[in-house]
Design a protein around this nucleic acid. Structure first.
Lengths: 224, 224
DNA sequence: CTCCCCCGGATTGTCTGACAATCTTGTATG
DNA sequence: CATACAAGATTGTCAGACAATCCGGGGGAG
């Protein structure tokens, strides 16, 4: 996977931001942890120029917070943040679900969702959280992309990714996986039926439920 | 410690991105125009480092589009973009209006809206488009901020700003100013009454109407 | 005359090294 | 025990350089 050295195509562009983002998404860095430029230059064998560029990107995306003259750190969310994020997610992803239902005529979408659903069934039956969470992400991703709106996609992504870590905690520490799975079923069912209104309602219900589960997490996981 | 030291006007730390953004918002640059780094370094008397940083920021915000190895240019919107943007704006700003209505208890908000409204009345009566548009912007801004959600604010801003130029065309070339003004009245009326549902509906109606007006603009103003 | 290839200029992507500005922290001082 | 100061760490910005890439145009082949 790493640097395709000689034979294969040049290492071309592996934007540093992508690597960092991937590590952040999987929780490799602790929230609140400082991201010192000098450390990153060594860790990734890149110049400070590129490290700073990557950090700016991630800050713009909300993964990282940047304080003037004080550097960057992995974003920590307060309960207030979480509430505001979910409030917005409800309308944004609600719209996405509605649009996906209206666009279910597209075979690509239909098959994609079907395949995804099969995998999720597997993971849910075995209660395999580590496998379910990425599938969950991919499902929401697929729905967000269904409409082909880069704006919808960008807005939704910015809201979804920062709370991935908390979502992981939720699925880990409670029997919420099955509940979440049932709600996904409801959403997909409405979408497959081409029922936009129902899909939106189901999605909003799902997100509100997800919010409540996150809200119930212990204080240590939040900022402030 | 408001102003600079002695002879104000000294190079204070005004982020380059802010200057550029302001110029873009007022349409000083033509859409599609290339933004060559070397030109900007001279124009703003800044190093390429800072110019590139600013461009990245603006690209992340959607004001500017950046093509690898081909530089940056002022973003041009296609009709497709406009449709997608308005679709999202409807739910995002609809939420903002609803929240503003629920938070109308705050005197700051109430007075702020009142003062704004008075100014807008003036501008509308005289048909002064150049004065109305900024007020329109400030009104939407105020509503978006009412809830104090940075996420809502960021999402809405990213959607609103790219179409400012088109909106200006709309208000200029048609008698739509009065129509828009009436719709603003409807929105504010619902908000002042603390009627969240009504505020959201009025806002969505307003945006749909605005979209139709933009859509009717001639092809030359769109990309592709 | 038209098409295609290649060249040089223009521009971007990245690196290096440097230095000032600013924040942080440990320590001496009252 | 609070405070001020000095040293160290880190970020912000700069200039200059060079490779990579793109763009437009000139020449040559057909």
């Amino acid at each position: 996977m790493t640097a395709g050295s000689k034979a294969d195509g040049a290492p071309k562009r592996v934007p540093l931001a992508d690597q960092l983002r991937a590590e952040l998404a999987t929780g490799r860095f602790a929230p609140g942890q400082r991201l010192v430029e000098a450390d990153l230059t060594e860790r990734f064998q890149a110049s400070r120029t590129r490290v700073r560029e990557a950090l700016q990107h991630l800050a713009a995306e909300g993964y990282v917070e940047h304080l003037p003259n004080r550097g960057s750190r992995v974003r920590r969310l307060s309960r207030r943040d979480v509430r505001q994020i979910y409030e917005l997610r409800e309308v944004v992803e609600g719209l996405a679900a509605r649009r996906a239902a209206l666009g279910i005529g597209d075979p690509d979408l239909r098959h994609g969702l079907h395949a995804l659903w099969a995998e999720m069934e597997m993971a849910a039956r075995t209660g395999d959280v580590a496998r379910y969470l990425p599938l969950n992400t991919r499902l929401h991703d697929r729905l967000i992309r269904a409409d082909g709106s880069v704006y919808l996609q960008a807005a939704a992504e910015r809201l979804r990714v920062p709370i991935l870590r908390l979502q992981f905690e939720v699925l880990m520490t409670t029997p919420n996986l099955q509940l979440s799975h049932d709600q996904h079923a409801e959403i997909l069912s409405a979408i497959e039926a081409g029922h936009g209104e129902g899909a939106e309602i189901a999605m909003r219900k799902h997100l509100r439920s997800s919010f409540e589960a996150v809200w119930a997490l212990p204080d240590e996981l939040f900022d402030r």
